[in-house]
Design a protein around this nucleic acid. Structure first.
Lengths: 123, 123
DNA sequence: TCTTGTCCTGGCCACCCGGCCAGTTTCGCA
DNA sequence: TGCGAAACTGGCCGGGTGGCCAGGACAAGA
């Protein structure tokens, strides 16, 4: 067990409000003993702040899009999703396209990552 | 509600590890611009940390594989990763292949999901 | 020395992905 | 009754992805 009091504590930020995120980043990065996590780095603790007011946060996804998204997160290909849902590959690609648009993602990997970050799906 | 930008940011702590909680408390309470929440007070953000001991060791990934994995989680294509790391697309595909093998994934989306589940990367 | 592991690069190829065009049906709402 | 949203399907195509083959450089360790 390390009792090193000088070891840095790695913090990651999950903050919706860009202004608050900026202010916290500016404040925390100057604190000795604390370091902000690089992208992908494991953090000892996470600073979270979901949109305080309202915060329904649920992006307007249809039921079908949710179905497709869940299977996408399992690593399923369009063909697999089509077979699973009993629809054609074209329809799957149609829903994936809507998902990429609504989640502001560049690809399916990005879409799953964004959805997981926003709590739309559980990894 | 007052939107005073010079106001202190109120933070609350939800940390399992008492040692980590103490260290963070000691560090944060001396930062001007940040105040720890009084009991029952509404906080602008919350610092959370799950039990770090519950996680098994990281799967044996090389540094380069971690680099590629982090960029994959950002939704970057092989070409983007290659440009970012200053290596060729072929090398990126080589590392991605190793990643798929080690993470027991069928594709890059699956790989990112698995890695996030196992705590290898932070989404 | 020889072996092992990591990292890097190339070509080739089948398949998948995402975006574009087009259309259909069904449903709820004004 | 008309109109839009959602769901569904099709063809087409450029580019991306993943698997396979091959090779070389370089450091650590047996």
């Amino acid at each position: 067990m390390s009792a090193d009091k000088s070891a840095e504590i790695v913090l990651s930020l999950e903050i919706d409000d860009p202004g608050l995120a900026d202010r916290l980043t500016a404040l925390l990065c100057n604190v000795s003993g604390i370091r902000l996590a690089a992208p992908g780095e494991r953090a000892a603790a996470t600073v979270v702040a979901r949109d305080p007011r309202g915060m329904p946060e649920d992006i307007a996804l249809t039921q079908r899009e949710l179905d497709v998204l869940a299977l996408m997160a399992e690593g399923a290909s369009n063909k697999m999703i089509a077979r699973q849902l009993g629809i054609s590959v074209h329809t799957v690609k149609f829903h994936v396209g809507s998902l990429l648009d609504k989640l502001d993602a560049t690809g399916r990997t990005d879409a799953v990552a964004h959805a997981a970050r926003r709590g739309v799906i559980e990894l």
